[in-house]
């Protein structure tokens, strides 16, 4: 089985409060903040690795190709995924500002045509833009079945289909999609038993988290290939369809007030906060 996993780096979400808006309000700046792989994308890499290995013996039983669209230094983000165990990387050079979900999906469509994977596994959304669109647009462009917000994936029909558990309001919706397909993953996809590929013994329990890159993984990632393209060299001509008009930081919260007594608290909740 071959899986394509698109990943993106984002400003460390733990420092979201340090993100600033440029003086003219035209863009968000995250200069000086640590860049990390988008958490949902890391879950996608983990899910893809679990689908293509024997978790008990740790032998690889398929191929995971990781790709990222962005400035040249996303190569480091790709290396991180290669260190976790993915086989190869593809870097598509492009400025962050010249992209929206539609452009990214157009790029991925080209990579899909080159790579012909059995599955494209993506994070359900980026924690910076939060648009939650790339997977869906890609599936539409490719005319492939899609299963979004996956919290479990089970290979079925001798590897010709997947049964995917989808996080929906109030429960889990199980759908079966024929391969090739597009799957976007949610947090619980890294649960210890969330992936069943018919190779890893059912008794094997993974930790409830994406794996750490081992030192050997980091050393071998140095030697793994990363192919380079540009958006233009792939023949993508789409321009972004979304235009950002203005960014503003949320208004500063007014300082809280201290109350002297329960009575005063109740009174304020009633007359000012109007919650009781």
């Amino acid at each position: 089985m071959k899986i394509l996993v698109p990943i993106k780096r984002v400003a460390d979400p733990d420092n979201a409060n340090k993100v600033k808006v440029s003086a003219d309000g035209s863009r968000v700046t995250s200069e000086g903040l640590e860049q990390k792989v988008n958490p949902f994308d890391e879950y996608a890499v983990e899910a893809a690795l679990r689908l293509t290995e024997n978790g008990a013996t740790q032998s690889r039983e398929g191929e995971v190709v990781v790709c990222s669209v962005g400035p040249k230094d996303v190569a480091q983000t790709i290396r991180g995924a290669l260190a976790m165990g993915a086989e190869r990387g593809i870097l598509v050079d492009g400025a962050d500002d010249a992209m929206d979900a539609n452009v990214i999906a157009a790029v991925l469509e080209k990579l899909y045509a080159q790579e012909k994977p059995d599955l494209v596994v993506l994070g359900k959304q980026q924690v910076d833009g939060d648009s939650n669109q790339v997977g869906q647009i890609l599936a539409e462009r490719l005319g492939l079945p899609q299963a979004t917000f996956a919290n479990s994936i089970e290979l079925a029909d001798g590897g010709k289909a997947c049964v995917v558990g989808r996080e929906v309001d109030g429960g889990v919706l199980r759908v079966k999609v024929g391969l090739p397909a597009v799957i976007t993953v949610d947090l619980r996809i890294v649960g210890s038993k969330a992936i069943a590929n018919g190779i890893t013994p059912a008794t094997h329990a993974y930790p409830d988290a994406p794996r750490y890159a081992s030192l050997k993984g980091i050393m071998s990632a140095k030697k793994k290939p990363i192919a380079e393209h540009t958006i233009a060299s792939l023949g993508v001509t789409e321009a972004p369809r979304i235009e950002y008009l203005k960014f503003e930081l949320p208004p500063k919260r007014a300082a809280g007030v201290k109350v002297e007594s329960v009575q005063e608290l109740v009174e304020k909740l009633h007359s000012q906060a109007k919650v009781i």
Binding site: E34, G80, A83
Partner: peptide
């Protein structure tokens, strides 16, 4: 990837990519 931790003299810059990845892991 930056050096994670106290880094007043930007010594992260003097580390290789793999050294940074090891540190961060």
């Amino acid at each position: 990837m930056a050096f994670r931790g106290v880094d007043y003299y930007e010594i992260g810059e003097l580390l290789s990519d793999e050294e940074k990845l090891v540190q961060s892991t």
